Amino acid sequence: MGDETVRRDRRGQVGRIGEDLAAEYIDSLGWRILDRNWRTRYGELDLIAADGATLVVVEVKTRASHTYTDPVAAITATKLRRMRLLARQWLAAQAEPAPWWETVRFDAVSVQLDVGDPEDRAAARLRHHRGLVE
C-alpha cells in the first residue's frame, strides 16, 4: 500500500470516528437524526437533525492533528453556501407531504481526536457551534 492510500484510509477512519461521536452527541441532546451522510453530485450533508420545530443541518469537522486550534476553522463561506444549496435539495427530496420547519439552522460539531491514538474516544474533544453564518 502506498503512502497516499494509507493517508486516505486514516482520513476516512478519522472522519468516521468523528461523525459517530457527533451523532451520539446530537442524539444525547434529544434531537432526532433524520439523515446521515446525505449525498448528491453537489456534495454531502453530514447530519440532518430535528430539534423540535427546527431543522438543523450539522457539518462535522474532525481532526487528529494540530493543524487547526478548532477544526471548525476549516468551514469556509463557500462550504456554508454549499450546505444551504444541499439543504434546499434535501428538503425538496422529502416525501409528500413535506414537513414544515419553523426554522432551518446550520451548526457544526468539531471533533479533535488524540493525534497518537485517534480511536481513543475518551480523549476526543467535541465543540458544538450553533448558528453558523457567512
Rank of each mutant, 00 (worst) to 15 (best):
A98T: 15
R81F: 02
L45C: 02
S110I: 05
L80K: 02
M83N: 01
A92T: 02
T69K: 11
V56A: 04
V104K: 09
A64V: 02
M83G: 00
R125G: 06
E24K: 14
E102V: 15
L80N: 02
L29P: 02
I33T: 08
L47G: 01
I26S: 03
A87C: 08
R8T: 00
H129N: 12
T103A: 15
A23D: 13
Q112V: 10
A93Y: 04
R121W: 04
V133L: 15
E44K: 07
L113C: 02
D3M: 12
W101N: 12
T40P: 02
L80R: 05
Y68S: 10
R36E: 13
S65N: 06
A98G: 15
A93G: 11
P97H: 11
V60N: 05
W101P: 08
D114G: 04
W31K: 09
E102K: 15
K79H: 14
R63L: 12
A92S: 07
Y25I: 01
P71G: 04
G43H: 04
D9H: 06
D51S: 10
V57E: 02
R11T: 00
E4P: 03
T78G: 09
R105W: 08
A74C: 01
Y42G: 08
Y42E: 10
T5S: 14
V133A: 15
A74N: 00
G18Q: 03
R84K: 10
A74S: 08
G2Q: 11
T78D: 13
W100H: 15
A74F: 00
T40Q: 05
M83T: 03
A95I: 14
D9K: 06
D46N: 09
R8H: 00
Q89S: 03
D46F: 04
I48G: 03
A124L: 06
A73F: 10
A92H: 05
A95W: 11
D35C: 13
Q13N: 09
G15S: 03
R11I: 00
W38L: 11
V56H: 00
G12I: 01
R10T: 05
D9R: 07
L47C: 04
E24L: 15
H128M: 07
K79A: 13
L85P: 00
H128P: 03
P99E: 14
T5M: 14
A73N: 10
L45K: 00
D117Q: 10
R32E: 14
